[in-house]
Design a protein around this nucleic acid. Structure first.
Length: 552
RNA sequence: UGGGGCGUGGCCAAGCGGUUAAGGCAACGGGUUUUGAUCCCGUCAUCGGAGGUUCGAUCCCUCCCGCCCCAGCCA
């Protein structure tokens, strides 16, 4: 963290002014996902902003489902979202709340607008409505149903609600201004007919409110003071304000918009993520390659890393694309501080130590600078494994270029002895299958004796007690920084090597029963966590590799 | 094109008329190190462009250029 105070953002400035002027006594915000998909990293930023504001000002932030369109929604998503929000550590406020809980009130307000001559039942079909709406440069035309008597509209909306009108035949529209330069104000639809069961209200309704008609009123009902959303809703704000000004709402919330988070080398659009899932380009919403909260969790990213990352982002009106490296920085930053260390050999190469017989245990700390993380026991034996990439027959390799095991030279086994490679054993195919080595006695926890200089440090596991495991190594999902920019089809840029499954890996005994949700650093490799998707086997997902700064 | 919004180093971003133009990420040098990790030092901008106002402008005005959002009975 920095010692510099984080500057306050424009929303905090507004809140400070509202508080100072007495316009607001208690800050109430909300996080309003539609349950039509899983939450992703972009939502995490929105949560940090909304729940964060509530925390900072001693207010509350409601998790509220904007479930106004049963066609796309599902309870599976509701449950997944609640789980993600809680996992990230946010207080649900008075939630979970649901827009569907307000359907009755919304309906009463709709009739109120009709009675006031501010809404009418329109019988234009979708295509006609589009034609009547005009274009960006031409004003729209009034609907021929615009001046329908209130009594008739009142009767018709009741028929719509009862399911007496067929889908698409009618809509309830606000009577605002078909010539408005803001297209959202050209008599927007308030209710549409959907003879469809809703995951929470069942078959009670045949009509459902539109986002515009519902959102601001939901906020008003909950007493939301600052309704913070993303930039694309800025053009809807005049409409948001129109409703609260023309309806007897219990409070008048204000909407503020900030730039949503975009990350390169991935996509943060529920529609596209859903496509990846539905068309099986990934194994599900929680596939570790997905930028979803559940995917990041399964990948091994900690909730703290996600929150720290989001808190490092600006809440402003610019909309840019954050470098994936910034997210990766916060992932490593948290994991480096909190993940216990362990050793796992990904591509085992057998080493036989010719001058060693028995076996012993070493007590090793789980973290180089955090004693509170405790100690673990490492088993050492005559035969051990090191990674194939940590050995070379090439004795001409410079010490500084190759700080690993080379025939005739020494290397330190992490937390154990210094050994020297003496002889290579190959199979008929010429593949190295074993290396015979000699250890230097008395070098555990001790510096090398005079005359011996280890090239470097290498991780290892005992062949006696290490456990076989599988390791999933991930790479970015897309090979293009901006896979969905312009008219590109993001599916054309999927990275065919985004997942590499390794088997025959060997992890130290202490991790034989690794727990899902725990984070480990496999020394010299990276950060790993046990995969929650395959508990029958010991499978580790590589969250992210260690930084690799050395230049060739 | 009508409306709305935005343009500060490779990326994110402070700055609110007078600052040596914060900070983070990345990058690049160097030090420490039983993880080529961590950690620690150091290097890295004149603010989209052109005018104007002002003693003085990244901050104010004008015009221009560029990018984003809105023409779903999606949210």
């Amino acid at each position: 963290m920095t010692d510099v105070e984080k500057p306050i953002n424009f929303i905090q400035q507004v809140i400070n002014a509202d508080l100072a002027a007495g316009r607001v006594k208690k800050v109430i915000t909300r996080f309003p996902p539609e349950p039509n998909g899983y939450l992703h990293i972009g939502h995490a930023k929105s949560m940090c902003v909304n729940f964060g504001l509530a925390e900072q000002y001693g207010g509350v932030c409601n998790l509220r489902f904007d479930d106004t369109n049963p066609e796309k929604e599902d309870d599976e998503f509701v449950q997944a979202i609640i789980k993600d929000v809680e996992w990230l550590g946010f207080d649900l406020g008075n939630g979970p709340c649901y827009a569907s809980n307000y359907f009755e009130q919304l309906y009463i307000w709709a009739k109120h607008l009709i009675t006031e001559g501010k809404a009418y039942i329109c019988e234009l079909n979708a295509e006609q409505m589009r034609e009547y709406r005009g274009t960006l440069t031409e004003a729209g035309k009034d609907s021929p149903f615009r001046e329908r008597a209130a009594a008739e509209s009142l009767s018709l909306i009741e028929d719509m609600r009862l399911g007496l009108i067929s889908e698409g035949a009618m809509t309830l529209r606000a009577k605002i201004d078909m010539a408005s330069p803001n297209i959202n104000m050209r008599d927007p639809v308030l209710y549409r007919i959907k003879k469809m069961a809703h995951q929470r209200t069942g078959g009670k309704w045949n009509i459902y409110p539109s986002y515009d008609f519902a959102h601001g009123q939901e906020d008003a009902i909950e007493g939301v003071t600052h309704s913070v959303c993303t930039l694309e809703f800025a053009a809807n704000r005049p409409l948001y304000d129109w409703f609260t000004a023309n309806l007897p709402v219990p409070s008048v919330p204000r909407q503020y918009e900030f730039g949503r988070l975009n990350l390169n080398y991935t996509v943060t659009s529920k529609r596209k993520l859903k496509q990846l899932v539905d068309q099986s380009y990934v194994e599900g919403w929680d596939d570790p390659r997905m930028p979803t909260i559940s995917g990041l969790r399964r990948r091994g990213v900690s909730a703290a890393a996600i929150r720290n990352f989001c808190d490092s982002l600006a809440v402003a009106k610019t909309d840019g694309t954050v470098d994936m490296a910034q997210l990766e920085h916060f992932i490593r930053d948290d994991l480096n501080r909190n993940a216990g260390r362990a050793m796992c050999v990904l591509r085992p190469l057998l080493i036989t130590i010719s001058n060693y017989e028995g076996q012993e245990q070493f007590d090793v700390s789980c973290h180089p600078n955090r004693e509170d993380l405790g100690q673990r026991s490492l088993d050492f034996s005559r035969q051990i494994y090191i990674d194939r990439s940590d050995f070379s027959e090439d004795t001409s390799l410079a010490r500084k270029k190759f700080k690993r095991l080379v025939i005739g030279d020494y290397v330190r086994l992490r937390s154990a002895y210094i050994i020297r490679a003496d002889q290579v054993i190959k199979n008929e195919a010429g593949k190295i299958i074993e290396v015979i080595a000699t250890l230097v006695p008395g070098t555990v926890g001790q510096d090398a004796p005079d005359g011996i200089r280890a090239r470097g440090v290498v991780h290892w596991v005992s062949n006696e007690t290490s456990v076989d495991c599988h390791v999933n190594v991930y790479d970015r999902l897309f090979v293009e920084a901006a896979p969905d920019e312009g008219d590109k089809n993001f599916l054309d840029y999927l990275n065919p090597e985004s997942l590499v499954k390794m088997s025959g890996c060997k992890v130290e005994a202490s991790l034989a029963e690794a727990i899902v949700g725990e984070h480990y650093q496999f020394e010299r490799e990276g950060y790993f966590t046990r995969d929650s998707g395959d508990l029958d086997n010991l499978v580790f997902n590589c969250t992210i590799g260690l930084r690799d700064n050395w230049k060739v």
